[in-house]
Write a protein that binds this DNA or RNA. Structure first.
Length: 935
RNA sequence: GCGAAUGUGGCGGAAUUGGUAGACGCGCUGGUUUCAGGUACCAGUGAGUAACAUCGUGGGGGUUCGAGUCCCCCCAUUCGCACCA
């Protein structure tokens, strides 16, 4: 991707911003006390529009066109003629450009190197740099983390705030197949686009730590971690049935396949046997479940991880096959119900089926197995849990170990060969599937756990807890006690034992693709595998002339014939691996590389790792709830066991931002999508949409933004028209961070209006000079304004922790409304406001800060404290209810006694009328809030 | 089918966790400024009424002096999971 950046860590804090001498630097001015003439403010590279500029801009404006755009609500095809709306506000183009240039020039956001302060590591899930560029959905999480990062800096934390690129992956490779361009070139271009878009938003990343997973200086270390896994016996090659996607020419992990299709593209997936690299994630199943207790994650995500791992504790139980010396081991989580076991079911693929099937049943069994095998895995997994049961008897019988009962052995496809032992015993009274099977095939149902009164096990299974019946030595015991008792009984007789099983399988870790990390392994002549020595890492991707798999189905790297030829540690000929790692590999550890991104001796510095880890706040979409987050935790735990990292878990706190949607318009018959400006609403309620000028009806749907659905809103357009700060603020104001919302450009206008009002508190836009409103000697007896200020500091401060930015922005607005009403604003109050709004609207805040006479960046100005005492009111409004109904209010002194308040309440005219002549049965007083007079 | 979440004005959403429902913003209505229907400012904006009364947080019950908030039963939407014994 790029050559490594030289580390430019800052060595002193707080950073003093140096005026850029000789360049008319923005800060090249002595601090001043009060109002200065606006005309003398220093110019940055991009001059602030002067009167003449504005006159031109205003003259160039076409009010009609503007109105049409506004009313249409789809003006994101932004007007590139000029700002166009700045008469009463600030010039965001100039301000944004000036401060972005300033931050870059001054290295404002370089990561501090002092290690005595507390640290805060806030991380975004890094994006795959697609060719489409960013849409307004991407920055929602980035803006939230930016507010946290900026506020934490001001609160005295050393903040690690970084961005990188998950840049290996399929789309670039597919594009390369089409164009012949090297994926690295495509990727580099896409990264440049993404980066430019992010920089327009003023996100406070330390860009000197930027990384890309496809960069050899990065994947060298991905290969090294693979070596660690290999050396610890956690990476192995195996011939396995894999999910092969013919359209992509590669295998996929189980996690990437859903309903028999590749999740990303929807291409069908089929089963094939191939030799593949596997990672033994199952060896970490237990810690992966247990350590979820250590992290502060959304409950839903914790549950998804648990479900994915699918730990279940049960027993393996041996059933002897009658009239035979064979036996069947079944897995069950309900050994307590063994007395109700009235038949045994094998998966159709179970190896014992052939051996035990009686001659009379052979034809039926063969036919059933044939039928099942014809149905693909896809069909089988698509079936619902309540799908009709099918199956066929083998004719053989088994002996129930607990009661010696002779019970039939069936095969049925609801038993999966790949889980447990591929065999189960059926207890129809205690399992819904078994019950359905019993009902269909007329098999006996024996009650073993007593359900609630009136429950008929012949009609429905009872899966709950209760006293056991018909169960010999288990009678009367509850489920747990019965389980313990029966397992002990079985173990004594060597007929069973307690076991733990997981749904999770080992991780299929190789792909037949070009654009991924090569494995640091070679295959020797005897077929064994050895690691490429560390000194020879990275194993870089060779240039090849075509990125498709070979005609005989080998991965693209098989084309690099010379590159493949190498030697082992004895100098004997050996071949390089032609598979590459899946895209997850790079994202499994990038949070560690950010700690020492340019170190070419180690993947990360141990002391630095101890300082920065764990990630304090990790923000990204919940689509990664199982895959990325599970894989990364797995690698981290291996690294922990290897003594390479200091924490058991990588991500202390996790937060999922909601997705931003936008209505899409699709012709249901052709599937074609239309841009918003191509369609129009018709009908009385404007609810039917048609393609303009035609009778083609289109259906509307809230959709993820995507180019193909023609519903993308581009953040660049928003920045151009409304400014980065208005855009940032709207992203946070639109609703709770975790919620999905529909994008509404009108809302950006709203936050822009707020920024303009904030600006005008200090600057007269007509003259571009400071107003007299904010002043050193303004009276400080404006209690309403003071209270609003402290309430705002409080709410914004809390929002940094609870991530409820929508209400924080609302509170900032409330303060500005209050301040607009005020005749004068004490300078100290206004400065406190500017500080707390600066994480949200950093460009404008810097500009105001400078106009206030400051010569250093606001990014490290100390965060203001709020005073609870200042939040209290002198007089409070007490609500008065009569028998629970609101009847009025009364204003009383904040320290008024209960008796005084009750008296005042009763004296309120309307209340007095209602209680006149009635006996008050009860008087309820809620301190400082209300009284309720019950009559 | 199972699980989780959500349901509040025309719209996005607030509500200190049982105590004045609708903060803040959008939109809308009226006014002032203005060459301008743009910007800014002022006023209003849950429904209903001439004004009251009254009715209002998906629906229905319940607990309570008091319920958007707690309990029970429905309905709807969204997102997961999909025969894992």
């Amino acid at each position: 991707m790029r050559s490594p950046h030289r580390s430019r860590d800052r060595h002193d804090l707080p950073p003093q911003v140096q005026p850029a001498a000789g360049r008319g630097g923005v800060a090249a001015r002595a601090p001043q006390g009060r109002h200065r003439r606006g005309g003398d403010h220093a110019r940055a590279e991009v001059p602030l529009g002067d009167r003449a500029d504005r006159a031109v801009l205003r003259g160039a404006r076409d009010p009609q066109a503007r109105r049409r755009r506004r009313r249409s609500g789809r003006d994101h095809a932004a007007d590139h003629q000029g700002p166009g709306r700045l008469m009463a506000g600030f010039d965001h183009r100039t301000v944004d450009a000036r401060w972005q240039a300033f931050w870059t020039r001054e290295n404002t956001f370089a990561t501090p190197t002092d290690r005595t302060r507390p640290k805060y590591y806030v991380l975004d899930m890094f994006p795959y740099p697609s060719g489409d560029g960013l849409h307004v959905g991407h920055p929602k999480g980035y803006t939230a983390t930016d507010v946290v990062a900026r506020a934490k800096r001001m609160m005295g934390f050393n903040v690690l705030r970084v961005m990188g690129w998950d840049s290996f992956g399929l789309p670039a490779e597919r594009r390369a197949e089409q164009t012949g361009e090297h994926p690295s070139v495509i990727t580099k271009r896409n990264i440049a686009t993404f980066k430019a878009q992010l920089q327009k938003l003023g996100l406070s990343y330390d860009w000197s730590r930027e990384l890309a997973t496809s960069d050899p200086t990065y994947y060298k270390w991905t290969q090294w971690i693979f070596s660690v896994l290999f050396e610890r016996g956690l990476a192995y090659r195996k011939e396995v049935a894999v999910n092969f996607c013919p359209a992509l020419g590669t295998v996929l992990a189980n996690e990437e396949v859903h309903d028999g299709k590749y999740i990303e593209t929807g291409d069908p997936v089929e089963q094939r046997n191939m030799t593949q690299w596997m990672l033994k994630i199952t060896a970490y199943a237990d810690p992966l479940v247990e350590d979820l207790a250590l992290v502060d994650w959304p409950a839903g995500t914790l549950k998804k991880q648990q479900d994915w791992i699918g730990k279940s504790i049960g027993a393996d139980v041996v059933f002897k096959v009658a009239d035979s010396d064979r036996s069947i081991t079944v897995f069950t989580t309900r050994p307590d119900t063994l007395f109700g076991g009235t038949w045994v079911v094998l998966a159709p693929e179970h190896p014992l089926v052939d051996a035990i099937t009686t001659p009379a049943q052979q034809a039926a069994v063969a036919a059933y197995r044939e039928e099942v095998s014809k149905r693909s895995i896809r069909d089988r997994t698509m079936e619902a849990a309540d799908a009709p049961k099918t199956g066929v008897a083998t004719g053989a019988f088994a002996t129930n170990p607990v009661n010696g009962a002779r019970i039939p052995i069936w095969i049925a496809d609801y038993v999966l060969a790949s889980y447990g032992t591929g065999a189960v015993f059926a207890c129809p009274a205690g399992d819904e599937r078994d019950h359905a099977f019993a009902t269909k095939f007329g098999l006996p149902i024996v009650e073993v756990v007593q359900g609630p009164a009136g429950h008929d096990v012949q009609a429905a299974a009872f899966t709950g807890d209760g006293p056991h019946v018909n169960s010999g030595f288990l009678d009367g015991l509850g489920n747990d006690a019965a389980k313990t008792a029966v397992i002990a009984w079985l173990a004594e007789r060597e007929l069973g034992k307690q076991v733990v099983r997981y749904k999770m399988r080992d991780w299929l870790f190789s792909r037949q693709r070009y654009w991924g990390e090569p494995f640091p392994t070679i295959e020797k002549q005897d077929g064994t595998v050895e690691l490429v020595p560390f000194a020879q890492l990275p194993v870089t991707l060779p240039a090849i002339d075509e990125y498709k798999p070979t005609r005989d189905g080998q991965p693209p790297l098989a084309r690099a014939v010379e590159w493949r030829q190498t030697t082992d540690h004895d100098g004997q000929p050996a071949l390089r691996e032609t598979n590459t790692m899946p895209q997850w590999a790079g994202s499994c550890w990038y949070y560690l590389r950010f700690i020492s991104p340019t170190n070419d001796q180690v993947a990360w510095d141990a002391d630095e790792e101890k300082y920065w880890m764990p990630v304090d706040l990790y923000v990204g979409g919940n689509e990664h709830a199982t895959l990325h987050l599970l894989y990364a935790r797995f690698w981290h735990k291996v690294l922990f066991d290897a003594g390479l990292v200091s924490t058991k878990e990588p991500f202390q706190r996790l937060f999922h931002q909601g997705m931003i949607h936008k209505t899409s318009f699709q012709d249901p018959t052709t599937g074609k999508y239309f841009y918003p400006e191509e369609v129009e609403p018709r009908g009385d309620d404007d609810k039917s949409w048609f393609v303009k000028g035609t009778d083609t009806a289109v259906v509307t749907k809230f959709d993820k933004m995507s180019k193909s659905k023609k519903n993308v809103v581009n953040p660049d357009d928003m920045c151009n028209e409304y400014g980065a700060d208005a855009m940032r603020m709207y992203e946070l104001f639109m609703g709770p961070l975790e919620d999905g919302v529909e994008w509404a450009t009108d809302g950006v206008r709203g936050t822009r209006g707020f920024l303009d009002r904030s600006w005008r508190l200090l600057v007269d836009p007509e003259t571009d000079t400071l107003t007299a409103k904010v002043s050193e000697d303004a009276p400080t007896d404006n209690k309403d304004l003071e209270r609003a200020l402290h309430a705002t500091i409080k709410r914004v401060t809390e929002s940094v922790t609870d991530l409820r930015f929508n209400t924080a922005v609302a509170q900032l607005m409330t303060f500005v409304n209050e301040a607009t009403k005020a005749k004068q604003i004490p300078r100290a109050w206004f400065e406190a406001f500017v500080k707390i709004m600066s994480p949200f609207a950093p460009h404008l805040a810097e500009e105001i800060w400078q106009r206030l006479g400051h010569t250093t960046t606001i990014a490290y100005a100390p965060w203001p404290a709020f005073d609870e005492a200042k939040l209290a009111k002198d007089t409070i409004t007490i609500a008065i209810q009569v028998t629970g109904k609101m009847r009025g209010t009364v204003d009383v002194a904040a320290d008024a006694s209960e008796a005084t308040i009750l008296a005042a309440a009763k004296a309120e005219p309307k209340v007095a009328e209602l209680i006149a002549g009635k006996a008050i049965k009860r008087e309820i007083y809620v301190k400082g809030k209300l009284v309720n007079l019950v009559v």
